[in-house]
Design a protein around this nucleic acid. Structure first.
Lengths: 176, 176
DNA sequence: GGCAATTAGTTATCATGGCAACGATTGTTA
DNA sequence: TAACAATCGTTGCCATGATAACTAATTGCC
């Protein structure tokens, strides 16, 4: 039998202490999306917090590790971040100050600054991997394989449909 | 025929310029959730930006309006915010300075500070309503009614399963 | 009555997110 | 080759998000 939260009313409304129902189901969906993301983000932040890393810092560090020995340019990191609006420079400054990454002007194109993980950075991430991987699984553990696939597809659809409306300003500039 | 993004590969991977596929579908789902929310949040922020309101400010103002003539206590507003971690005081300071809300010490319980919308605040919101309502609908316009229902249910499930891990610290205190 | 525990808000501190402006470098082209 | 444009990154400014410490008011309990 379905749990109490499937009553129409619904769970979000009760959660947020609202007296009035949502104006429409689509409005409820929008709010649910944002609120759920807020909760999940905090869960990840809590996980990396003991390592003295903020969630965005962890995100950036992981991207740098993923780039391998060739390094990766600053703005490329920003593009791959979950929040692509971030001011990446200061974030990398902290990672560099903590000895987790190393920066170096690119050889042919001196405009670029390439980033590399240091052994310490790699060690830190490697230690965190099991926990993060576990949380990745736990977040959607409630969803069956079938629902999970549908969930990803719906998110992809929503993201694509709203890409124009929600792109950070610096990525839109190219369209002018 | 399904659009290109349904190819396994997948759309998110291409979007973020990743060379390697996700470790698992559940990891992909977690990242898709966070990234989608980021895009949608920006879309709403863009919408209220011309009114000199940040997205959280709009959110708070709307909650105050929803409370009606009885007013609403400061911390109650925070509970109902999409991001319940916010430092609400400064946000309300701005709204008050802009003349959109009015604050007043509660009568019987002088610890509380009740907030009320001013006529200007109401006017501003009323003018914004059509646009916000429209965006609420547009965000998930790609989803059929059936998928929409499933979407909301999945988000509710995820949120409930992660409530403990992702609650802001001040709400957890009660459990100690 | 009197005092500890609670509750409501405020404030301080630090890190991020959003934006615009700037400097440095490279590419283009008249 | 001398402007000019585009690209890459950095920096400044302001607003938010996360937490903890702190004040004030109220409640409970003896």
């Amino acid at each position: 039998m379905p749990p109490a939260r499937s009553r129409r009313g619904g769970s979000l409304q009760a959660e947020m202490g609202q007296r009035r129902p949502f104006r429409s189901k689509r409005q409820e969906a929008a709010v649910a999306l944002l609120r759920t993301a807020s909760v999940v983000t905090r869960a990840f932040a809590r996980l990396v917090e003991p390592s003295e890393l903020s969630w965005p810092q962890y995100n950036a560090l992981r991207i740098v590790r993923g780039a391998g020995s060739g390094g990766i340019a600053t703005l490329t990191i920003r593009e791959r971040m979950i929040d692509e609006g971030t001011t990446i420079t200061r974030l990398l400054d902290k990672l560099e100050a903590a000895g987790l990454i190393r920066r170096e002007r690119s050889r042919p194109d001196r405009r670029q600054v390439l980033c590399f993980v240091t052994p310490e950075g790699r060690r830190l991430l490697d230690g965190l991997d099991p926990k993060v991987d576990a949380l990745d699984e736990e977040v959607t553990a409630e969803l069956s394989e079938t629902r999970l696939t549908a969930f990803i597809d719906m998110l992809d659809d929503i993201r694509q449909a709203n890409a124009g409306r929600g792109a950070p300003r610096h990525t839109v500039r190219a369209e002018v």
